[in-house]
């Protein structure tokens, strides 16, 4: 691996993303065994630093670490000394002083994972830094696309929802473009960044256009607090314009693979009939999340890539 850390995909080498995905598939095979554990990271210590609430990402990382036989410690802001006024720097330097090999961090502030690398020598893996990046989510999304389509290159991927505030969208755009996919963004004008031009993506505000065009769509969770701040007027109107419903999908006479990073607002951005339907690969994403994170931890902590 060319980079010590995984902070984001914007500057991450494409060939290393490919190596991670290939390795993820060999770990997928481990997850299907009756004994789902390998000794690959025995003796390694990993800290999960969660400054922001998260259930699925934290569990996914923790399971990945346990499957690889690493020793893990969890730290969340609510249980920490940060509440007692200790600075971020002191907190992380204290943790590092206890001899750890890697830190997985979720933090509400953009750039926090880069910031962390200034204070620790351990490998840093970004598990989401504010509205900046969420690289492991994008990698598991691409692993799922690879699994479903056998390739990522040449695919047409729609990303639907609140692009402006989405770390999942940013990391997906960077990763998909690097692997040769074509990307179209769709959402209300207020939630597509004004300065999106330089990202080399298509933009539409018409859901039918993206559904007509795409092989797969990644449906983002719409945060209802955005409504209170005026980015869209009501759930009803959002659902009318951008909600993925069975009726909407039926208008398009082809199969469209449905993805969602979770947690879902059923009945808002996605209907249950779609989320639970045969074209949805949402639960495959969850399983691939564990496999992809195993691959990331394994490779960044010195393992050799698997070539499929």
């Amino acid at each position: 691996m060319q980079e010590k850390h995984l902070l984001g995909l914007e500057h991450y080498p494409a060939e290393d993303i490919v190596s991670i995905i290939d390795t993820a598939f060999s770990f997928r095979e481990v997850l299907d065994r009756p004994i789902k554990k390998v000794p690959s990271l025995q003796g390694k210590t990993i800290v999960n630093l969660f400054f922001e609430n998260s259930t699925r990402t934290r569990i996914s990382f923790e399971l990945a670490q346990k499957r690889l036989s690493a020793d893990t410690v969890n730290f969340s802001a609510s249980s920490s000394s940060l509440k007692k006024g200790e600075s971020f720097k002191d907190t992380v330097q204290n943790i590092e002083a206890m001899k750890i090999d890697a830190v997985v961090m979720r933090h509400p502030d953009p750039g926090a994972s880069l910031h962390l690398t200034k204070y620790v020598d351990a490998v840093v893996i970004n598990a989401g830094d504010g509205t900046h990046e969420h690289p492991t989510q994008a990698i598991l999304d691409m692993t799922s696309l690879q699994e479903r389509f056998g390739k990522v290159k040449g695919l047409r991927i729609g990303i639907i929802g609140d692009i402006a505030h989405s770390r999942v969208a940013r990391s997906n755009i960077y990763g998909l473009k690097k692997l040769g996919a074509d990307v179209m963004l769709c959402g209300p004008t207020t939630l597509i960044p004004h300065h999106i031009d330089s990202f080399d993506v298509r933009v539409t505000h018409d859901l039918d256009e993206v559904l007509d065009w795409a092989d797969a769509v990644n449906v983002l969770r719409i945060q209802l607090e955005r409504m209170d701040r005026g980015f869209f007027p009501s759930v009803r109107e959002y659902r009318n314009l951008f909600g993925i419903t069975s009726e909407r999908l039926k208008k398009h006479k082809k199969e469209i693979v449905i993805m969602h990073p979770g947690p879902m607002n059923r009945g808002v951005e996605i209907d249950s009939s779609v989320a639970d339907g045969k074209e949805a690969i949402i639960l495959d994403q969850v399983l691939n999340g564990v496999a992809s994170r195993m691959a990331i931890l394994y490779l960044l902590l010195g393992g050799k890539p698997e070539n499929n």
């Binding site: 914007e10 953009p110 750039g111 830094d129 504010g130 509205t131 900046h132 990046e133 770390r167 940013r170 960044p193 004004h194 300065h195 999106i196 031009d197 330089s198 990202f199």
Partner: peptide, 13 residues
């Protein structure tokens, strides 16, 4: 400053 850089960094512009 709100622009391309703020959009990439995910920082409010």
């Amino acid at each position: 400053h709100e622009g391309e850089i703020s959009t990439r960094l995910g920082l409010a512009g």
